[in-house]
Design a protein around this nucleic acid. Structure first.
Lengths: 147, 147
DNA sequence: TTGGTTGCAAATCGTTTGCATCCCG
DNA sequence: CGGGATGCAAACGATTTGCAACCAA
């Protein structure tokens, strides 16, 4: 860990989250990796930074971060595994490469008007949606073509 | 079970699936329930019809049905549980009530053009997407307002 | 000081698998 | 009859929990 610890503390406080060594470490990893990762990958990454954090603590921290709106929990397409990502300002979605799991954050969301229409048609109050796009990134496309 | 067994057999054959007592029973439940359900709910429903089917068989059948394009596997928002639903003709999505889990199938999908734009921007080949809307149905809204 | 946070280990949940038996075609 | 389908029980991976020790405020 570097001098960023203090900044993390402030950042967490903004979300009403008490700062601890472990939470700073998890936040570090979330910031460093722009995209989605499973709890396991996140845990591995924390360990790699040299910080000692228990696996169940990682889960508890992720749950807390999610409640406070700092991270977003979603699901890797097809699998039943949860993935986590830092919530960006505003509303965004992910484009996920099925080959290498590379993730691109998409800040445009085409659903606002659509939701409104659906709400009118159904009488539902729509509070949100899950949207993930998936496909293959340029590199993985090449690999697939070679086969 | 009623006389529908024979119809189910034909239906399954259309998908290249051999008919068995257990598969007919699962298909029955899938047809009866318009919307998504977890493997567990589906299993319970099968048991309730009086058919004897093993839990792991249900999983195997659902996996097979999915491979053959008869059912769709997705994820319940927020949770890590898989849910299954009969695949409708064409492309569709679900609007899920967070209160009572009632599901409405939405046959419109606003993403085709959006995907094209994202593909051009990123160089990705986009092969699909997960989209689920969630909110509260009219009944559950009332319940919530009473609190 | 003290209530919230963590580590540890065990429990739990959903899902998958190996293998012997069974049944559809 | 034969190969695929099933039941059973055990394995499995991911996630959650109870409890005692610990630490940030």
């Amino acid at each position: 860990m570097t001098t960023s610890g203090l900044q993390h503390t402030e950042y967490l406080h903004q979300f009403g989250i008490k700062s601890t060594r472990q939470r700073n470490a998890v936040l570090d990893v979330l910031i460093a990796h722009d995209g989605i990762q499973t709890a396991g990958e996140l845990y591995q990454a924390v360990v790699r930074t040299g910080e000692l954090v228990n696996f169940s603590t990682v889960y508890r921290i992720l749950e807390l971060f999610q409640e406070k709106g700092l991270v977003e929990k979603s699901t890797f397409p097809g699998s039943s595994q949860c993935v986590f990502s830092l919530r960006k300002a505003g509303h965004s979605h992910h484009l996920i490469c099925l080959g290498c799991k590379k993730t691109i954050t998409i800040s445009k969301c085409p659903l606002a008007m659509f939701e409104q229409g659906v709400a009118e048609d159904t009488g539902f109050t729509i509070v949100g949606h899950d949207l993930e796009l998936y496909g293959y990134c340029p590199e993985c496309q090449k690999k697939r073509n070679r086969k």
